[in-house]
């Protein structure tokens, strides 16, 4: 769904804040999702294909295509080259119409157990 190839404007570092822009055109100006919270680390899974009305915009459909398997909100934004806030609004639409399921990370500040941490250490070593 990239509309243009990655260019210098993607290599935004710390020089300046980006230009004041209106990335919310794609959401019809809506800045708040219709429903849901959508942590960066929440996972999205597309629901059964025939459930709910056909989503209105190509971006909605791109999300559904990308979420045939569980995909993190942050990955969606990076893959679709859309700002996170825009993706959240689109996800809210899809959630409200039953097109996706959301799996938020645990609400409490909960560290993973030792087995997971060990798996991470071993996995990193093996990289």
């Amino acid at each position: 769904m990239r509309t243009d190839p990655p260019g210098p404007h993607h290599e935004w570092l710390d020089d300046e804040a980006g230009p004041v822009v209106r990335p919310y055109a794609v959401t019809g100006g809506r800045v708040q999702p219709a429903s849901g919270k959508f942590d960066l680390m929440a996972f999205v899974v597309a629901g059964p294909p025939d459930e709910g009305p056909q989503p209105p915009q190509p971006e909605h459909r791109a999300i559904i295509a990308a979420a045939q398997r569980p995909v993190a909100v942050a990955d969606l934004a990076a893959d679709l080259d859309l700002p996170v806030g825009v993706v959240r609004v689109l996800l809210g639409d899809l959630l409200a119409t039953g097109r996706i399921s959301m799996y938020e990370p645990p609400a409490s500040r909960q560290f993973p157990d030792d087995d997971i941490l060990k798996a991470v250490v071993n996995g990193l070593r093996a990289l």
Partner: peptide, 28 residues
């Protein structure tokens, strides 16, 4: 109209390390 609201974009470094199918490490 929220359409009139201004936003500023910030690009962050984002990386993913796949430990296995069930375990991902995300770097920000």
């Amino acid at each position: 109209g929220v359409e009139g609201k201004q936003t500023t974009t910030v690009a962050m470094d984002f990386g993913r390390i796949t430990i296995n199918d069930d375990l991902q490490v995300y770097l920000f």
